[in-house]
Amino acid sequence: MKAMFSQWKAELLRTARDRRFFLLTLGMPIAFYLIFINQQGGDVKIAGTFWGEYFMVSMAAFGVLGSSVNTFGVRLAAERKSGWVRFLRTTPLSSVGYALAKTFTQLTLSLFIVIVIFAVAHFSQNVDLAPVRWLEILAWLWLGSLPFAALGVLIGMAGSAAQVLGTLVYLVFSMLGGLMTPVQVLPKTMQQIARWMPTYHFARPAWNLLANRSVQWSDVAILLAYALLFIALAALVQRRVDSRPE
């Protein structure tokens, strides 16, 4: 427990010093939000809610995705490549403890990102929801970020390709999942593709909550399936890495 806490604390400290994290992972969704809202106007109606609210959820999801696949995945790859992960295995910090500490770090960062995006939307567009609604959406985006943490772990195993792969997944998943442009205005084929994107099923329940609709279990199920897929793939890659000579 103490070992995990120590690891968690150090990870947060490292993130707080990471300029890339603030400029890109946090800065981009904020910038996109301010730009795209001013182009359309926050009062435009969309999917039973307003553009200012709808896109707030999109950008919160975009931020969480970036923190998982870009910052987290790339950092993990660097730690593996530098032999640090191997070194940690000689300490009393277990592999499970290490994974949990990393997961808690990601959850902490997701919470932080979502709250910052909410604050930006609230103060720039006067987005105002019932307190319960705020909490519901926050809770969903927070817990729904877990499959993306698993995706980050998988990307972290890509070695020197992690940076490129992370950026690619970041862009492709956010565009095809309808985080940049709402699915409703996309061509039919793109809509079909979006339905298979984890990012779409991550943001959709939050969009539904905005429109006073309830969370659909199919979204939860698909996200869970993705999480299991990412974890299984990561375990598979791990086994191959372990059987290589030093």
Partner: peptide
């Protein structure tokens, strides 16, 4: 147990003292 391995580099964005404290946190 204390261990030194070959070709390990430490994580970025932590000072020497912080890295040591990270490790101190692993032990009772």
């Amino acid at each position: 147990l204390g261990v030194m391995l070959q070709s390990v580099s430490v994580p970025d964005r932590l000072t020497v003292a912080e890295t040591i404290n990270l490790f101190r946190g692993f032990y009772p």
